[in-house]
Simulated assay, not measured.
Amino acid sequence: MADIEQAKATFARFDQNGDGMVTAEEFKHAMAEMGDPYVTGPVAEAVIKARDTNNDGLMSFEEFWTALQKA
Rank of each mutant, 00 (worst) to 15 (best):
M1C: 12
D3L: 03
Q6T: 08
Q6L: 15
Q6G: 14
K8A: 09
K8L: 07
T10C: 12
F11T: 00
F11W: 01
A12L: 08
R13D: 06
R13A: 08
D15N: 08
N17F: 00
N17W: 00
G18F: 00
G20I: 03
G20L: 02
G20D: 04
M21R: 14
M21E: 12
M21W: 12
V22P: 00
V22A: 01
V22K: 00
T23P: 01
T23E: 04
T23F: 00
T23G: 04
A24K: 00
E25G: 08
E25K: 09
E25W: 12
E25L: 09
F27Q: 02
F27N: 03
F27H: 06
H29K: 14
A32R: 13
E33H: 13
M34I: 09
M34G: 11
G35Y: 07
D36W: 12
D36T: 07
P37T: 05
A46W: 03
V47H: 02
V47I: 11
V47F: 03
R51I: 08
D52C: 05
T53K: 09
T53N: 15
T53S: 14
N54W: 08
D56Q: 07
G57D: 04
L58M: 13
L58V: 14
L58W: 14
M59F: 04
M59Q: 03
F61T: 00
E62T: 14
E62H: 10
W65A: 05
W65V: 07
W65P: 00
T66V: 09
T66R: 14
A67G: 06
Q69W: 05
K70S: 13
K70T: 11
K70A: 14
K70G: 10
